[in-house]
Computed example of a mutant assay.
Amino acid sequence: MKARRWIALGIGAFVLLFTLITTISVAFNTYSAPVLGGADQTIVSDGDPSGQIALLEVTGPIIDTGEPGLFDTGGYDHAAFLTDLDTAMTDRDVQGIILSVDTPGGGILESAEIHRAIVEMKEQTDKPVYVAMGGMAASGGYYIAAPTDRIFATPQTLTGSIGVIMSSYNVSELLDNIGIEEQVYKSGPYKDILSPTREPLEEEDEIIQAIVDEYYDEFVDVIAQGRDMAEDRVRELGDGRIYTGRQALEEGLVDELGSLEDAITAMREELGSNYQVVSNDEFLNFGNLFGLTLQQLFGNDSPIKIDFNQPKPYYMYNHE
């Protein structure tokens, strides 16, 4: 009886603790993430308060995972980033923008949305936009950097990976070996294209390759225009390989070797004033409520998984 009583008490305590944490987390998540210009901004580098340099971060895969949820682990928030970018563009106090980029890339659509927002900003304002690359700014990370005014990379940065990747698994032989057969009823011959349970048709290879080529052509055009580089030269560099910061500088993919601090110094020099640098405070959620992320609690697996049944094209390095 004593053992059962202790088990019951333990279960009750766990339920109570979980309910308390959930209630607190929901209370936090009912508020929108703070945006630049609000009371929740952080002064990253103190300076002249008459103007600001907005520091926006792109950290982790550039994937739109929707609104932060109860078990959100932090990382890149696409909607919040676009909101901050728009706010920085329209805020009269913001004199320049620096993107701190540390990402392997990400979705085709998300990368294009950021690129389009930067291009529109340059067309509508005279605010300089710099990129400071971190450990990695590959594929989609370089895609969003291409239209900016000045790109900084450290010698250790891995960048480039210019290209598109789209993949699926083929487990048909495995299913044959264990005696499993999928029955498919479809309205057209290509409705189950990239199915993992059968060999692809030759025509399907051509269809998928045409999609990848179209997105790759778009990537090439973005770099050619953003970096004022000949298309043939972009295609020569854009064979999917990665470059170190030094190699990227030699090939004209970045403008200068330097850190985020170097980018801040350079922008202040261009603006002619020691403006303060501001960014958003981190949005609090269940994953970091007590100083721990869910990755720390349950392992270091990437929060982004490629859907087994829904292969998609990506501007991403080492996407799996």
Rank of each mutant, 00 (worst) to 15 (best):
V184Q: 14
I178T: 03
P196C: 05
K191P: 00
G163C: 02
V222Q: 07
G160M: 09
Y190C: 04
V222Y: 04
Y215K: 05
E173K: 14
V220Q: 05
I211V: 09
R198Q: 10
E202R: 05
V164I: 15
E182W: 07
I193D: 10
S168F: 13
S168Q: 08
P200N: 02
E218Y: 06
S195D: 14
E182D: 06
P155F: 05
G188W: 15
D176S: 13
P200W: 09
D217C: 00
L194M: 15
Y215D: 02
I211Q: 07
S187A: 14
I208F: 05
L175N: 11
T197G: 07
I178S: 07
K191T: 08
S161C: 13
R198S: 12
S161E: 13
Y169H: 15
Y190K: 10
S168W: 15
G188Y: 15
T159Y: 05
P189L: 05
T154S: 11
G188K: 12
N177S: 14
D217G: 04
I162D: 10
I180L: 15
S161G: 11
A210M: 06
E214L: 07
E214A: 11
T159I: 03
V184I: 14
T159Q: 02
R198Y: 07
K186F: 02
T154W: 03
A210K: 12
K186G: 05
Y190R: 07
V171A: 10
Q209M: 09
V171F: 06
E218F: 06
F219R: 03
Q209T: 02
M166F: 07
K186L: 08
E199H: 02
